[in-house]
């Protein structure tokens, strides 16, 4: 008599997520390195100077942007990394289907994005403290979290969702590359062609630029990321393991 263990997709996905979080925990070092790089580039990321009445006024604005850009690159890389063979095969040493693997990856990337988004937001404070004690320049009052908590939360949320979207880009590129090299380059060419035509620019303008609020932008980005992950899942459905 056979006793088959019944296991639901949800519980497999949860186990995979838990497992992947441990397995990929080493990525923390890459994140720290890139955030430190971000801080180094952040001081005077945006610097402007004007002269009036023979007096030069320089204003250095240190913002999260540089850190965010570095971490975005990491998000793309990590999204790409976990589609590589070694990472994919690891899943199948345990219970997994391609669907559960993809969902788990998508969730893991979201969790990573949350961690990266929140920490990136706070790296600016590391810089604030450093500059406060080390700079002879005068400081301009800047917005603090307490002044506008909603706005701060929205910025963090936006960063998280954008990082997630970037990781999905890396993910779909990796999936395509693993599945069909030809398809990958084909897609690349199509994207470049689209980018060069005006309509595409117009479309991306509608999506990313013409938004009445950041929240709408975030919602759109979220939708795009979901779409990309779904596409990747569909593509990878015929990908063999240990071949």
């Amino acid at each position: 008599m056979m006793f088959l263990s019944n296991i639901s997709l949800t519980s497999v996905v949860l186990s995979q997520v838990k497992f992947k979080l441990s397995a990929y925990s080493g990525l923390i070092y890459s994140l720290i390195i890139l955030q430190v790089l971000g801080i180094l580039f952040a001081t005077g990321w945006s610097s402007s100077g004007t002269s009036i009445n023979n007096i030069s006024i320089n204003l250095n604005i240190s913002s999260i942007d540089s850190g965010f850009i570095f971490v975005s690159l990491l998000a793309i890389s990590v999204g790409n990394l976990i589609t590589t063979r070694a990472y994919r095969y690891d899943d199948f040493s345990f219970v997994a289907t391609r669907l559960s693997s993809n969902i788990a990856n998508c969730i893991v990337l979201l969790i990573f994005s949350c961690y990266a988004g929140v920490t990136t937001y706070f790296t600016v404070y590391l810089m604030r403290i450093f500059l406060t004690f080390n700079s002879t320049n005068e400081f301009v009052e800047g917005p603090t979290i307490l002044d506008d908590p909603m706005n701060s939360l929205l910025t963090i949320l936006a960063m998280i969702i954008f990082l997630w979207m970037f990781s999905s880009l890396g993910y779909i590129a990796g999936t395509l590359f693993q599945n069909h090299k030809l398809l990958f380059f084909g897609a690349l060419v199509i994207i470049i062609m689209l980018l060069l035509t005006g309509t595409w620019i117009r479309i991306s303008e509608i999506i990313f630029v013409e938004n009445s609020s950041l929240l709408i932008l975030v919602a759109k980005t979220f939708g795009i990321a979901i779409l990309i992950f779904a596409t990747s899942t569909a593509i990878s459905n015929r990908l063999g393991v240990r071949v």
């Binding site: 088959l4 263990s5 019944n6 296991i7 639901s8 997709l9 497999v12 441990s22 397995a23 990929y24 925990s25 080493g26 070694a86 990472y87 095969y89 690891d90 040493s93 219970v95 997994a96 289907t97 391609r98 669907l99 559960s100 459905n237 240990r242």
Partner: peptide, 23 residues
């Protein structure tokens, strides 16, 4: 292929089995 029940109740042991290096 892509069946959770089968995956949960079967295992293939071979020399290509991989596990994460981080563990």
């Amino acid at each position: 292929y892509n069946n959770l029940l089968v995956s949960a109740n079967s295992i293939l042991v071979d020399d290509q089995m991989t596990f994460p290096d981080s563990l």
